[in-house]
């Protein structure tokens, strides 16, 4: 069973919740799919077992031989990434058009390292994560790679927990592919509602069963109610409502899990959420102890 935690909007509490659920579920494999700004390892990883560079994109490179400045590459490149035979690495998508049109063999396509895949030890099991090269192309491919790394490391994980990236572009689509269940963490705000709508539309397209929880629901009870109505309309099970709780901020400041404060209202709500989630996972045919 692959369970993905997503939100559309950033900063709604995905990682905080993912860390708590990783502890509660005892999941043997946790994957941090937010490769552009990964944080889960700060809470869960104890030490790194393996680091491996990953080339997930190509880039055009100039050769030593002379460029005649014919300008064909510039004319044909649709990304504005090459001028006077010089490649702008920030803009090059590695499509190979310039290499193909160059009459002088001045250009070649080379592999580009887009990130480092890391396998880390957690207290329950293993974590697969990545450190993406800043500004790199192909964050989706990197996500696919660490998911593959996760499957190889723990081939028969009963529960694989995935902390998703914000947004709904390629990295989110790569995170969603093949997941059986997704938990949407919606923030009780107008922006949270708008982004929850968009992520639910994507989950529907990708045919991933969605569950939803509202974080800091009491910050805006009206928006929280609207999110509940959205769940009703779309028949999305609401599996939890987590209150605003200063202890969460305290935990974040000290790089601790919220569960370190088990009597706090937020931790209590997460315990209840996990109970509900566990029965949903069981219904889906997943088995967890």
């Amino acid at each position: 069973m692959h369970l993905l935690i997503v939100s559309g909007k950033g900063g709604t509490g995905k990682t905080t919740l993912a860390a708590a659920l990783a502890q509660l579920s005892g999941s043997e494999m946790v994957i941090d799919c937010d490769v552009e700004a990964s944080n889960l390892h700060l809470l869960l990883a104890e030490n790194d077992l393996q680091r491996q560079q990953f080339s997930g994109a190509k880039i055009a490179k100039e050769q030593a031989n002379d460029c005649r400045r014919c300008g064909l590459c510039t004319d044909y490149c649709r990304f504005g990434a090459i001028h006077d035979g010089q490649v702008d690495s920030n803009l090059c998508e590695g499509c190979g058009v310039c290499v193909y049109v160059c009459p002088e063999n001045h250009l070649v396509l080379t592999d580009m390292v887009t990130g480092t895949c890391v396998l880390s030890q957690t207290s329950n099991g293993l974590m697969s994560r990545a450190e993406m090269e800043p500004g790199a192309e192909g964050s989706g491919k990197l996500v696919t790679e660490i998911r593959r790394q996760g499957r190889l490391a723990v081939p028969n994980a009963q529960l694989t927990l995935l902390d998703g990236p914000p947004g709904l572009g390629c990295a989110v689509i790569a995170s969603m592919t093949g997941c059986q269940l997704a938990l949407v963490v919606a923030e009780a705000s107008l922006a949270g509602l708008s982004d929850a709508r968009r992520i639910l539309a994507l989950l529907k397209q990708m045919e991933v069963e969605a569950l939803l929880c509202i974080n800091r629901y009491d910050i805006n009870l009206e928006a929280s109610l609207e999110i509940e109505q959205l769940c009703d309309q779309q028949q999305i099970p609401l599996v939890g409502k987590i209150p605003h709780d200063p202890m969460v901020r305290r935990a974040q400041r000290h790089n601790q899990s919220v569960l370190e404060y088990p009597t706090s209202p937020a931790a209590q709500a997460i315990f209840a959420l996990w109970k509900e989630l566990r029965s949903r996972i069981a219904k889906q045919g997943g088995s967890i102890e």
Binding site: D34, M132, A136, G138, P165, G167
Partner: peptide, 10 residues
């Protein structure tokens, strides 16, 4: 800008 540090941010 978008969050993250990928090509969208670039």
């Amino acid at each position: 800008c978008p969050p993250g540090s990928s090509c969208s941010v670039v």
